[in-house]
Each structure stands twice: as C-alpha cells, then as structure tokens.
Amino acid sequence: MRLSSTGRRPWRLSGIAAIAVAGSLLLASCAANEPAPGGESPSGLSGTLVGGGASSQDAAQQAWVAAFQTANTGATVEYEPTGSGAGRDNFIAGANNFTGSDRAFKDDELAKDNFTACVAGTPIVEIPNYISPIAIIFKLDGITSLNLDAATIAGIFKGDITKWNDQKIASQNAGVTLPDLAITAVHRSDESGTTENFTDYLHANTPVWDADASGNWPYEGGEAANGTSGVVDAVSNGTGTIGYADASRAGGLGTVAVKVGGDYVEYSAAAAAAIVDESPAAPGRNAVDLAIELDRTSDAAGVYPIVLVSYLIACSDYQDDAIVPLVKAYLGYIISDEGQAVGVKAAGIAPISATLFDKAKAAVDSIR
C-alpha cells in the first residue's frame, strides 16, 4: 500500500533542519534561516560530495541536489548519471562518495570487501530510496495503450514477434487497429539496473525468456541505445518502436498495461509500492543493508511487477571522516518526508513506507 506522509511516522524535520547534522554543525533553530558570517552555509556544512550512477534517478537527483544546495550554500553535491554498473564500479574504486544503483550489490560482490573508501571489514549502507515502475514505452500513430502478457513482451524483445499486427498482440487488444508494421525493439547498450529489473521480470514470468536476469542485454538483434535518455530518444524518434525506461521518462509515448493474474495493470507509483511492500528482505544482510528481493510473480490485484527499486549506496564507516557529515546530511534529506516529496514531484516515485523509513534513518544515523 502506498503511504502518504501523513500515513507514516515522519522524521519531523523540515527545511534546513532536515539536512543539518548533529553536534557542532547544528546551529540554533532561531538562526537557521539567517545568513551566516562570511557567507557560510547556515547549516555549517561545506565541501563537495561526489556521487553518480543510476540514470533512472537523474531527474530526482537533480531536484534533490538543487534543494539541498539551496539550504546548504556552502555545500556542493555532484551526481553524474553514468549508469548503475559504472556507478558501482566508481564506488568500489572510491571515485564516488556515494552512488545510485538500480540493484543492490550481490553477495559475491560484498564478499570481496574491496570498497576503497570504506574501512575494511565494515558493511556498506544500501537504501532503496527510489521506487518506480519501469514503463514499456512504444510509438505507434493513434495508439496510446496496449495490453500485453509476459510471453508476448518477451517475444517482442527477443525478436520472435516482428510485426505489430501479429496475432499474439492482436488477441490481447480487441478493438485496436494494429498496423502491418515492423517492430523495432530498443534495449540498453550499457550495463543497466533497469535492464536487470526488466529481464528479471521476464525470466521469472515466462519460459519464452530463456536467458537469466542480467544488467547486460542477453540477445542479438534489436536496436541498442545508451542510458535511459538514449532509449527514450530512440523510441520517440522512431516509428513502430518499443523500449523500456523508468516511468518518469515515459512522457507522451504509448505505454503497456501488463497482465497480472487475470487483469492488465497500468503502471503507477501505487502499484509499484504495493509489490515492494510485499517483497522480503534479502537474506543474510547487515542491518544497514536494506536490499530486498522483489516478488515478480505476484498475482495480487493492482500490483505492477516491472518495478525498479534504485538504491543509495554509501559506506557505514568512511576512511575519510571529513566526508561523513555531508553524506549523512544528503542521504538523510533524500529519505525524509520533504526529500521524498521532492522526488514525487520531480520523478513520480512512490514514497518509501513507514517501516522502510525507520530502517533507512537508522542506517543513515549509523554512518561514521
């Protein structure tokens, strides 16, 4: 169930207070909005925080950065939408102070314990801060919505179904005049958490998709495009095109209602949040690692199974103590009621639930 800010126990801080840190960095609330001597940030925060990764988070991250820097004029936050794979690699190498990723680190990756910026032997923090459906987007003149089941979606993206008027599509869309037009299926060329979530849904729901879930596209053929923007541009600028992207980027393109049980479900933030709330935590993780295992096969009413859960990833214990106040302040702002509301407005995300918020706040508070 999607919870509003009034349906969860909020972190009752707002504005500058929401992103200030404890101790010597926290000024008296009566002076919180007044200019500080010498042009310093009213919160006392200063320095540069370097992040990057998931391009799906880009719209929300730009909004979060703008709000955070407005309240903390001495602080700079950089977020480069390099893609999830590059973001994780940069975090491992210590090039990013934090990263965004459309999947959590896997057990074998965590076992290597080679996170350069983190104190060896300490866990990393992984917070599912960005919950959004992945939309299947298409461009067909005069058609704005189609119903498709998992097997048909898989056949289209594998290249087995090549025409829009194929009977497998037509049989699910009575009354829709489908053109005798070639299908151009667009996929990501870069390693992508969006691709991994999309292929995980297909792998879990139909034997037609005989490849494992992967962040790298597993089949030959189709058209490849770099990043979320590349896929959206390729679909938008083509005819008879179809692709997949974070739903916030669907714009005016046609979208697919996905078959769940006996119904076809349109994407929505509420439907995405519903499947996240029903999914279990990943086993064997530290308390600050909030990775979950999505149940893609749920047939519950109103659940949308092609959902992207994108994570904020940070050290729980940094080699460089100087970066800690900025990391805690920025991550704390993102998960707050205020930050999540900014994400809703900028990118249409589903706000995190009360239970997840409490765990996320504890994880952020533990960073040192």
Rank of each mutant, 00 (worst) to 15 (best):
A282H: 12
E293H: 13
S279M: 04
D299W: 07
D299K: 15
V288Y: 14
T297K: 11
T255S: 01
V288R: 14
A273R: 03
S316N: 12
G262Q: 09
V258C: 05
A287N: 13
G252P: 02
A269D: 01
E338G: 05
V342T: 11
R285G: 07
V324F: 13
S310N: 14
I306T: 05
D263C: 00
I242V: 09
A281N: 14
K259R: 07
D320C: 03
P325T: 09
D295S: 04
G254R: 01
V309N: 11
D337W: 01
D320F: 07
I275D: 07
A329Y: 09
S316L: 08
L326K: 14
R285F: 07
K328A: 10
D246I: 13
A341Q: 15
E266A: 15
A270W: 05
D263R: 09
P280K: 00
Y304L: 02
G261P: 02
I292C: 09
L290W: 04
V309R: 11
T255L: 03
A245M: 03
D295L: 05
A272D: 04
E338T: 06
Y267F: 15
G262C: 08
N286W: 08
S268V: 00
G284I: 01
V344T: 03
Y264H: 06
Y330L: 07
S316W: 10
G251I: 03
A272M: 01
A272H: 03
A273H: 00
D337V: 09
G339F: 07
G251E: 00
D289A: 05
Y318R: 06
V342L: 08
L331R: 10
A291R: 09
Y330T: 08
S248H: 09
K328Y: 11
E278L: 13
N286S: 15
V327H: 10
E338F: 06
D337Y: 04
A269P: 00
A273T: 00
L294H: 13
A329L: 04
A322Y: 11
L294D: 12
K328P: 10
V288S: 15
A314V: 11
Y333K: 08
Y311T: 08
L312W: 14
D277L: 08
A287I: 12
R285W: 08
G332C: 08
V256H: 03
Y318P: 00
Y304V: 06
A291T: 10
S310C: 10
Q319H: 12
A341M: 12
S248P: 04
D263A: 13
A257W: 01
K345E: 15
D320L: 01
Y304A: 04
L326F: 13
P325D: 10
A250C: 09
Y244R: 14
A274G: 04
S279H: 02
E338L: 02
A341P: 09
V276R: 08
A271V: 01
D337F: 02
A269E: 05
L253D: 04
G251D: 04
A272N: 02
G343N: 05
R285N: 09
D317L: 12
V288W: 14
L312M: 14
D277W: 00
S336V: 00
G339K: 05
S248V: 06
Y330I: 05
G254L: 05
L312F: 13
D320I: 05
V256S: 04
A282D: 13
D295R: 07
S298R: 01
S268M: 00
P280D: 05
I335A: 10
L331F: 11
